[in-house]
Amino acid sequence: MIPDLGKYTETVLSAYGISIVLLVALVVLSVMRGRRVRTELKSVEQRMSRDG
């Protein structure tokens, strides 16, 4: 499945691996924080409107 990378297999794979992990981590963390903040805002807004 993986093409023949010759003697640089580890180099290329580690570069791709680390980069993709970093990027995915950035996206996941952003989305997680976004979700958390969104639900928190909803709860705060509901509380505010209920309390008047």
Binding site: E40, V44, M48
Partner: peptide, 27 residues
């Protein structure tokens, strides 16, 4: 495109976080 998407999304998050702060302060 990834940069634009991330920045837009994270800016929305920041706006909401700021809003929470403002609401709590008002409360």
């Amino acid at each position: 495109l990834l940069f634009i998407a991330l920045v837009l999304y994270r800016t929305c998050t920041e706006i909401r976080a700021r809003r929470i702060k403002a609401l709590l302060a008002r409360e």
